[in-house]
Amino acid sequence: MAKNRVIDSCQMLMIGGSTGSIEVLLQLLPALKTPLPFALVLVIHRKNTADSTLVNLLALKTDIPLQEVDDKDAILPGTIYLAPADYHLLIEQDKTFSLDDSEKINYSRPSIDVTFESAADVYGPSLVGILLSGANTDGTAGLNAIKNAGGVTVVQKPETAQVPFMPQQAIEGAPIDWVLDVKEMEGFINDE
């Protein structure tokens, strides 16, 4: 299958989501095979409190090391990184993270567009971006940037999303390679 090659060359997988996306992650994370051959970055819209509830909740669901990003952390394969609340998450050319607390984009900080665009700039064709459920237009511009840089774009099948608006917007506004439900995403990421 063609998609096996896709994930073969992947150095970074990014998943962006808003309302209804945490439920997807709770189902997806336990299904991921270890060791993960690339870095996985999660950009999830959430309340702008600096508490650690979400990172703890997600870490319970996987044996893969999972951490909330600190400024200048190195990006390593086999690790899951969660974008911290109330910052934009950016990727530097030397494959480290940097943070930015400038104005919200699409009413959001972290903004999925900001992280996807920044990662596309660094990872080009070895980046895969997945956009999940949400009630926002965030993510569409980011998926465009990923595609323009030669990467791979995936959205959650809108009819399976708790809030179909965000993936539907992406399908209408960006070239999408794969439209998958959660079960299919598991297979896609695990290269099965």
Binding site: L90, E92, Q93, D100, S102, V114, E117, S118
Partner: peptide, 9 residues
């Protein structure tokens, strides 16, 4: 300055 943020600005 951190380049990724500067480039965005």
């Amino acid at each position: 300055y951190a380049r990724a943020s500067l480039k965005r600005r």
